[in-house]
Design a protein around this nucleic acid. Structure first.
Length: 906
RNA sequence: GCCGAAGUGGCGGAACUGGCAGACGCGCGCGACUCAAAAUCGCGUUCCCUCGGGAGUGUGGGUUCGACUCCCACCUUCGGCACCA
């Protein structure tokens, strides 16, 4: 009797051998075709991994092993996103240096990865908190600091080109160009004043540097930011969900602090456009588009009555409704508010501004919120018709979007409609709806009476574009929508009070953190302004400190270390970079991870990048995945990399939930997420200890569709284990326990084997790993049947076993290697070529066709695969089932669906 | 509210381009082996049923010889966005 399958014995043995032989060490750039398959690199937590974390690692490992067997040079690396708050908070709590925790936690992760038999090339391991790595994060930071986005070249270029232009011609030409090419609105800070060459030359170096901040791709600015009072840290817009910080869950508050930003806004248009080139889940693409938030329209200047020099520009996507603007609303923070407010309204306005400021993000965005606002006492002139309209302030107008001021068109904007109703402001219809035209049977312009009548009946704004423009001077009579919008913009431009404008919701990416455990920002603040630390002095090392806590007002712990802060040239920057910076380029570093002369040898970078398949969770949709794209584009512009998009194919794995079913207060059943605090975590360690890594891997693949959220099943792993047991026995001892005799020819077995290869490759390419495993299980079942049909020992049998083991190798590498070894085949199975499907062998000899009568299956027929259509139809008509329903009559219709069925209509 | 995805047995899920619904696995039932148990093997397992069939993929309609698949309306769940002018 053959010994039993014992994963605990064979898995450590082979893992040690593979490691000793460096079986998975990746070759440098060469003539072989490459395949780069990457997992989102994790932040190593003290808790280690759960089976949920392995959900993406196993499929990518299958891909890596598959492509190796297909003859590709495969890059399949792993690293750690080691900086950041979780480790820092743990360090504070445990009173242990985060450097030490980082080493401890990442070592534990490596141990777990190895336990699962993942084929990473460990010689390429990177850790973002090691100076050899963050030196280059700092290097890229300086590339951004020393660059600006020239809108005329549509790319980033060194800041010296801007300085030269300012000295020669001032900034007028650049700002004019942006004005006429509104897609480039994000290349410069809002409100940057135009200066002449004389003014530039008259500035001190410090003033010049301050002005350059308006253009640099990495810049410092005074800004209202999201402050997380629990973690005592600022967080980026992308890290705030429903007014709460992404990580801590605390309600964020607004604070004004000087911070570092990356000018992601300069890339808004390209970040949208290049989404067309990537193979990403539609959901992520949509989220990025929404986040960037492009909208097109016009900027129109309204003048304030009795203060003709006060111009208030507004942004609108519906310039075709300009004639319907019956009031204006400014954001409470709008800088003009104090200047235009009439004395008798001053007190009320100030009270309202204080109220708006005190509102939290959550209150301000509450869904059922009533409109609030106050009248400033001032009036503006609607430039298209000269009408005098009141200026209000209200919190529904945001300073951060557009110009912070709107023209209110209550008839055609629901928010303005609600505001007008509440404060009894006039509503003027300028788009007469199509539906009303039809109701009245109108083909030409509606009468004044018809418009007034409709106006009276309105219960909501008419925001649709279907209809005809009325009461709008030269525009009246035009169909509303695109054409009218274009005409309105042309009219405004011609009259000199408006022009085409594009707006993006995306704002500069807030990168600085006043915390310890991050990459130091390599800047020294001199009396002349910010100074980049010279490249040869990098890295700026993160000094050891005794206390990691930020100050009570969020001061960086680095501020209290004089030897760090004080330099001969000035005061060193004490902010560190958020971890998003580290993760925005790590995929490049893997191409040449230990290079100490450059971020990587261009030969290696050009060979390996971009990433072919990138797999991770969907929670980074607008964070890491957007930031990385921006950095890639900057590096592309500066000639450092040759690719525009870092990740060609992206897939998101689904979540794995705890297996215990819970019932909520409404009696509904649900499964909770695995978390240490709930005590429901299942670790790969415990599963492997009981059933082995191969069974764990098999079940991770088999559990569900890859992208689906699914509860873990404790019964699932033993099921896969049973299958591996069956593989073990049928390979090593096929004759030991026979079942009842079965029917199968050698030809049948060969067909099944080759069909399995085809199914396997099709499923793998479709990320359909659950059906890939099912195909292997069916193949195994077929081998048992073949045994009972007496095929053991036939050449087809040996071929089938050979194919089974090769197909098994990427999925269950240990058992495949062991069985391969026991059959006396040469080490290692993982260096064998993948089997090639023989299409002829896979083809069926006979077809089993269903015979349908009026759409219902009534019989089945078997015909030779090469039978012609007429023969097949006749065979179907002659079948017992068909005869029963035909009763000798001729069929009305008869359809043959190739290889599937014959459908007869009687 | 808006946008997107998804609803299939007791459970996880299959089903290619509109073509035999329920592959594969779990669970369950019956049987074999065994003194017994475990393991293993075999058979069965959508529902109803008068054993000939009938119904069936969230609900209601439609297109088609034929619909899990396409169209319309609705319900539910999950994700995302949410005063973005």
């Amino acid at each position: 009797m053959v010994e039993r399958y014992n994963p605990q014995a064979i898995e450590p043995k082979w893992q040690a051998r593979w490691e000793q032989d460096q079986l998975y060490k990746t070759l440098p750039a060469c003539d072989k075709p490459k395949y780069y398959v990457l997992d989102f690199y994790p932040y190593p937590s003290g808790e280690g991994m759960s089976v949920g974390h392995a959900r993406n690692y196993v499929p990518t490992d299958v891909l890596a092993r598959y492509y190796r067997m297909k003859g590709y040079n495969v890059l399949h690396p792993m690293g750690f996103d080691a900086f950041g708050l979780p480790t820092e908070n743990a360090a504070i709590k445990l009173k242990v240096d985060p450097h030490e925790l980082n080493e401890r936690y990442s070592a534990n992760y490596v141990r777990q990865y190895k336990l699962m038999g993942l084929s990473y090339d460990w010689s390429r391991l990177i850790n973002s908190a090691h100076p050899e790595y963050y030196r280059w994060t700092q290097w890229i930071f300086l590339k951004l600091f020393n660059a600006w986005y020239d809108p005329r070249l549509d790319k980033a270029v060194p800041i010296e080109t801007l300085e030269a232009e300012l000295a020669e011609r001032g900034s007028g030409a650049i700002l004019d160009y942006i004005d006429n090419h509104p897609e480039h609105i994000g290349v410069v800070n809002k409100g940057t004043p135009a200066i002449t060459a004389e003014q530039w030359r008259a500035m001190s170096r410090r003033e010049q540097n301050e002005y350059l901040y308006n253009f640099r791709l990495a810049f410092q600015a005074e800004s209202t930011v999201n402050w997380d009072p629990v973690d005592k840290v600022v967080v980026a817009d992308e890290e705030v969900e429903n007014g709460r910080a992404w990580r801590s869950g605390a309600l964020v508050i607004k604070r004004t602090i000087r911070q570092w930003f990356f000018r992601i806004t300069a890339y808004a248009e390209r970040l949208i456009k290049d989404l067309d080139e990537v193979d990403w889940p539609e959901r992520i693409v949509t989220m990025q588009r929404n986040w960037i938030g492009k909208s097109e329209g016009a900027e129109v200047i309204f003048r304030v009555c009795n203060a003709e020099q006060s111009a208030i520009p507004v942004f609108t996507t519906r310039p075709d409704t300009l004639w319907g603007a019956t009031f204006m609303v400014l954001s409470p923070e709008h800088p003009l508010v104090p200047h235009i407010t009439a004395p008798e309204h001053k007190a009320e306005v100030e009270r309202y501004i204080a109220f708006a400021k005190g509102e939290s993000e959550e209150q301000r965005t509450a869904t059922d919120k009533e409109k609030t606002g106050v009248f400033t006492g001032a009036y503006a002139i609607n430039p298209v018709n000269g009408e005098r309209i009141p200026i209000w302030i209200a919190d529904y107008v945001l300073m951060s979007y557009g110009t912070g001021a709107i023209m209110a068109v209550p008839a055609h904007d629901q928010r303005d409609f609600e505001f007008a109703k509440k404060f009894n402001l006039p509503i003027k219809v300028v788009v007469f709806p199509q539906a009303e035209m039809e109701r009245l049977g109108l083909s030409g312009a509606p009468s004044e009476a018809a418009i007034t009548d409709y106006e009276r009946r309105m219960t909501a704004a008419y925001e649709d574009k279907a209809g005809v423009i009325v009461n709008s001077g030269p525009l009246s009579g035009t169909p509303a929508g695109t054409e009218a919008i274009r005409a309105a913009i042309a009219y405004c431009a011609q009259m000199g009070f408006g022009k085409r404008r594009v707006n993006y919701k995306i704002r500069p990416w807030l990168i600085s953190r006043q915390r310890y455990w991050g990459t130091p920002i390599p800047i020294i603040h001199t009396p002349d302004g910010p100074l980049a630390v010279p490249e040869h002095e990098l890295p700026v090392l993160l000094p050891k400190v005794s206390a990691y806590e930020p100050g009570p007002n969020g001061e960086s712990p680095l501020e209290s270390i004089p030897e760090f802060v004080n330099t001969p040239l000035g005061r060193r920057e004490t902010d560190t970079m958020a971890t998003w910076a580290c993760s925005s380029w790590y995929y490049i570093r893997f191409a040449d991870p230990h290079n100490d002369k450059a971020i990587g040898d261009p030969k290696e970078i050009d060979y390996w990048l971009p990433v072919d398949t990138y797999v991770g969770g969907a929670e980074h949709a607008v964070l890491h995945l957007l930031y990385s794209r921006m950095w890639t584009k900057v590096l592309y512009d500066l000639g450092i990399v040759k690719f525009k998009e870092p990740f060609r194919t992206l897939r998101n794995q689904g979540l794995i939930l705890s297996p215990q079913k819970r019932v909520d207060e409404h009696g509904r059943e649900y499964y909770e997420k695995m978390s240490k605090s709930k005590g429901n975590v299942i670790t790969p360690d415990e599963v492997i200890a009981e059933h082995g890594a191969d069974a764990l891997r098999g079940y991770e693949l088999f559990i569900s569709d890859f992208e689906q959220t699914v509860p873990w099943s404790t019964q699932g792993v033993p099921g896969v284990r049973r299958w591996l047991d069956r593989v073990w026995r049928i390979v090593l001892a096929p004759e030991e326990e026979k079942g009842p005799p079965a029917q199968m020819t050698p030809r049948d077995l060969r067909r099944i084997a080759h069909q399995t290869i085809l199914r396997y490759e099709r499923d793998l390419k479709a990320f359909s790993f659950n059906t890939l495993v099912a195909a292997l299980m069916e193949f195994t079942n077929a081998l048992y049947k073949a045994r009972d049909a007496g095929l053991v020992g036939a050449p087809e049998w040996d071929e089938a076993i050979d194919i089974l083991l090769r197909l098994l190798a990427p999925v269950a590498p240990h058992i495949a290697e062991e069985l391969w070894h026991r059959l006396g085949r040469p080490y290692s199975i993982h260096q064998q070529p993948f089997p090639v499907a023989d299409e002829a062998a896979a083809r069926a000899d006979v077809l089993h066709l269903a015979v349908q009568i009026n759409g219902k299956v009534r019989d089945r027929i078997t015909v030779p695969a090469d039978a012609d259509e007429e023969t097949i139809k006749q065979a179907a008509l002659a079948s017992e089932g068909a005869k029963r329903y035909l009763n000798g009559a001729a069929p009305k219709q008869i359809h043959y669906v190739k290889g599937r069925l014959v459908s007869i209509v009687v």
